[in-house]
Nucleic acid binder design. Structure first.
Lengths: 221, 221
DNA sequence: GATGATTTGTGCGTATGTATG
DNA sequence: GCATACATACGCACAAATCAT
């Protein structure tokens, strides 16, 4: 009978945290835009209390900022912020790769490889769905982070990923880097397979550095 | 007249966040202990509303955990957590050192050096105040982090520092490592002065690794 | 500016769930 | 199992600050 239990739904403040976060990352609320508690409350059919709790969490994560007049503003990154984020990302994701090399099982490695293969298959088609490729690339990074088996590392990288998502909303119009990215991912993975964590980490840093340069290029326009 | 303005005091939820955090880090609330909103509210002479908002932030930072019955529990680290934290700390503080080498002005470098000297002076006395030395060591790390001039990095390291503080409460009885720590700090700083960021970062990782080993040793007992 | 409408900060009441006896 | 005492989740009310007219 145990499998028939009913999930107790999460408290509103928790659900709201995820929901508002998603709205920001999906661009429903745009960077620099104001969020009004009372309006949100009305739209969601809830009181302001759980909404305020969710906002405090988003504030702590840096996804919203409280201005000097207590208004809630969606975080609006500066170019310096992008640099800061990428420096941290390189430090943390290169750690993630090293740990994954040490800790990922054969099966887990096979999973990462499968994502790479799928990505390669997509790219080889003349007409492929860009979003699918983006998603596979995202998965590649996520799997490595996940198999690093370091909860705190995952948490920090999660908050970094949120910010990256925001940058995408701000500027996303990729010229076609799918092939380049695939090659770089492949290189990282090959070193991982050889259990060469140093080289794998270096390849990751190099990859992220290209990504950074590319992003900065877009932001300059 | 402009310099005579009166500071607008921070909202309660914000003050409470700092206050409750301090109480946890000072050991007023001990790891594993329960915190009861309504009691806190009574003690502080406030309603539960701003307290709840502060708790949500502390929860997000991992300093308190909400258990399956919605109770607030002070975070109680496991040995695995210590490993996780130190891995992240090494990745991030070695980045901090590298950035500081690139970015710290001569004056800022002199400030770090002064902290080191003060520390050395203290140690050379037969009878010195341990807490003062601990504080100076803390300052050494803090200055390096600060002069890295990367806001996000500082934020992540701040949350890591909170956790380290908790470990101290759990187990703090240092056998005397003051001299060893000073030597390691000196080594890091000497490389910084030579603008050798790679060596400085390596020395930092080595230093933190010793720290980690030491802490694990204490936790084992 | 003065006035009414918003919006935020905070207190409080209540329902629901949990522990205790 | 029931009754009582707490705790938490949430809605609601009101004051102070801010905004708009």
């Amino acid at each position: 009978m145990e499998s028939y239990f009913v999930e107790k739904s999460l408290p509103f403040y928790d659900q709201l945290y995820h929901k508002i976060k998603k709205m920001i990352l999906d661009g429903v609320f745009k960077p620099g835009e104001r969020i009004v508690e009372s309006k949100l409350a009305k739209e969601m059919n809830l009181s302001r209390t759980p909404i305020r709790e969710a906002i405090r969490v988003l504030e702590n994560e840096g996804l919203v900022v409280i201005d000097e007049k207590s208004r809630i503003i969606v975080y609006n990154p500066t170019v310096k912020d992008v640099e800061d984020v990428y420096q941290c990302r390189m430090a943390l994701e290169s750690l993630a790769v090293k740990l994954s090399v040490q800790r990922a099982s054969d099966q887990e490695m096979a999973e990462i490889e499968k994502v790479l293969e799928l990505c390669n298959n997509k790219i080889e088609q003349r007409e492929y769905d860009k979003d699918e490729v983006i998603d596979l690339n995202f998965q590649f990074h996520n799997l490595i982070i996940h198999y690093s088996a370091n909860d705190l590392l995952q948490k920090h990288l999660n908050s970094i990923k949120s910010r990256l998502h925001l940058y995408r909303i701000l500027n996303f119009q990729g010229d076609d880097r799918a092939q380049i990215i695939y090659n770089e991912h492949k290189k990282i993975f090959d070193y991982m397979k050889e259990k060469n964590e140093t080289k794998a980490a270096e390849a990751m840093v190099e990859h992220l550095n290209h990504d950074y340069k590319h992003l900065i290029g877009l932001l300059a326009t």
